[in-house]
Design a protein around this nucleic acid. Sequence first.
RNA 1: GCCGGAGUGGCGGAACUGGCAUACGCGAUCGACUCAAAAUCGAUUGCCCUUGCGGGCUUGUGGGUUCGAAUCCCACCUCCGGCACCA
Length: 829
Amino acid sequence: MAGYEPKAIERKWQQVWADEETWEVANPGQPGFDERKPKAYVLEMLPYPSGEPHVGHLKCYAVGDAIAHFRRRQGFQVIHPMGYDSFGLPAENNAIKTGEPPRVATERSIASFQRQFREWGISIDWSRELATHTPEYYRWTQWIFLQLFEKGLAYRTEAPVQWCPKDATVLANEQVVDGRCERCGTEVEQKNLEQWFFRITDYADRLLEDFDLLESWPEHVITMQRNWIGRSEGAEVVFHCEEVDLDFPVFTTRPDTLFGATFFVLAPEHPELMRLVAGTPAEEEVREYVNRVGRESAEERGAEDREKTGVPLGRSVVNPVNGEEIPMFVADYVLMEYGTGAIMAVPGHDSRDYEFAQKFGLPIKRVIEGSDPEEARDGEGLPYSGDGPMTGSGRFDGKHNREAYEEIVAWLEADGRGRPAVNYRLRDWLVSRQRYWGAPIPVVYCEGCGIVPVPAEQLPVELPEIEDYAPQGKSPLAAAEDWVATECPRCGAAARRETDTMDTFVDSSWYFLRYLDARNAEAPWDRTASDYWMPVDQYIGGVEHAILHLMYARFFTKALADLDVLGVQEPFANLFTQGMITRDGAKMSKSKGNTVSPGDYVERYGADTARTYVCFMGPPERGGDWTDEGVEGVNRFLSRLWRLCEEAETRTEAGEPDAAAGGQARELLAKAHWAIEKATRDFQRGFQFNTAISAVMELVNDAYRLKNELYGTPEGGAAVRFATATAASLIFPFAPHLGSEVYERLAGGRVWEQPWPEADPALLVSDTVTLVVQVNGKLRDRIEAPAEAPEEELLRLARESEKVARHLDGQQIVKEIVVPGKLVNLVVR
RNA sequence: GCCGGAGUGGCGGAACUGGCAUACGCGAUCGACUCAAAAUCGAUUGCCCUUGCGGGCUUGUGGGUUCGAAUCCCACCUCCGGCACCA
């Protein structure tokens, strides 16, 4: 008998699936479209093709494929496409180092991913394959940019960016590690440059509200996005500076502490700052301070235990609630990007203001009483951030601060000194990159017309071939003079192309829509296709994308819905984030030398083993440590299933099992139905693959235990055959090749065309149950009892047990608890 | 500091609604097969006491609710992830 040889089996079925295009599905209106089936869009995050796939990819696509297979066999029409996020920095950095064009390295990597996806047996609809670096794709990325531009959602403005002085280039945020340039280690500087932005902040509230539209997302991902958006409700309050007759509005979430404001602080970047001190004795010191802060990196400035610094301005503003004049300062703990770049400082109730006040000897005033009245009297317990009755607040004294909150705002508003306001932590999305390997931003600059969008019919603006990829302080594209020089689409005069390219997150913010109609040359997608397939029913990927990619894609979806080219508000109804696989307890990295190459394991044990192993390691949402012993354990299990198949094929007859069989035949059939029930529940409850696989292992173990007896009779043989074919059917989503092969041999037919098996309820119940007998809650005996026995019968059986009797000796039963079919607990004293 | 997640054998992990803790896998020990090894098959495997029968203890710690708690409640400890001077 031949042993389990995955290579031959896997090649055979991969050939079938490729030849027959098994996993391709049609769109509505196309031939082959089945309108009776409900749809399911199963999607894993598309890979960034760099080098070879790693184990993280294996896990992601193994998990997604299991879901896709399960849904298909549940009767869904499943769309399960694949593509490549093929623009990006690593390919470009490689080009700078080696001179190899990014396109060449990228396409080589894509070929490697394609080959491995086929070797893994992932059920992909290859007719919908895409790569974001192809003109056929980025043409539509550019088209979407133009739509956003027309709607005012894409705009150009000056903004501070990270600048590496050594490489003379702007860096993407991801390229700044601990305040230093990732490549040369030079400390980065902030520079103001004209940049393109997407107005994601317009969607802040909808991004928050529409969490309600999601079916199932991990709670922590929603929380992370909510924190990232950082919506704060409060008030804008105006402080007036008489000396220069200027209003300084501030944003505060605590208008109830207004009476406690004892000073006022401006951010070093505040536009009115220098005007305030011009010609005063403070001018020199303020200028020095601002310059010093300006030289510091964001990292230094935001350091956790940094001491408060600042300079008095020699000016004051009037607190609108009580007319008090309070001194003004400049300090770097106030950020220009948030609120108005100015704050009222309430040292009694804010720890940062408190620190500053301590250092500069400023008054600290309590205006909210804490729970301990002693403290209030002594001025202890400050800063206090809790709630309580107000004090030192004029007409509001004695009132609870939460109640006074709105009253204060309303009072200020009536006098025009304030109003309710909302602030967000979220900033607009900076999308321009001074980089070569990305989608060109489709605009031109004309002397006469200014910024002119490239007309849609002239798309794509193709990325030109260039010689030198090294950044020279502007995009390497600027060197492609022939390409840059163009004419204005509006007036025909000489004009210059935008040389920045788009952030690659733009490419990946809409790819799930292109899959729906990937070969469409007239439009990014057809609305009938998106109306049918959207939203994605199950999205799968790493939690590292919890904020950026997932929020950008949500923003795009809403913007595209507003443009009326899409009919959904949320792209991903259900999200699953898989945990990271480690090796020896540490994150895999080339420098640590602890990487695992999926290809090696597929070569040695077969794709089925590798796939099943990553699904069996533990709950897929949690991480897991890769061990070779674990892989071998799974390989051993699949080999056992294989040998069982070979043996059953010769020693049993084809045919239906006898549902009325008794004895061990019934025992094995019951186990098979138990496994069906267990695996189905594990799939339906989410991603409990590890326990689904263990149920199949139990079934195979039982078949081994019972088979030699069962081969003796026809109904026994039929039970073994059924159990083995069932194991194949249930393991198919994880080990599709072996599942197909075993199923075909024992049951005939193609397992993926079979409906997912259903457990026979008659075989899930048994005549007897194991009755657990406890005395005072402690387990004392287990008794086989008739399943339908009444309570009195169970109590009688329990009392008759010798083991139980020993513990009842000389004691009085004060209570009897009976859980029918399960347990009896006798309480004695 | 704030937010989120998790603590169960030697290890990865199971346990539906409060009802047999440790399924399944790894590792380990023993046995069968073999000249031998590998592979395979079978048995044992939470800890402590006991020759055995049996008994006691055990789900991060301490308390509570309950006939009964890994599961519910309170307090605490540890680890992991995210954000972090956001007014």
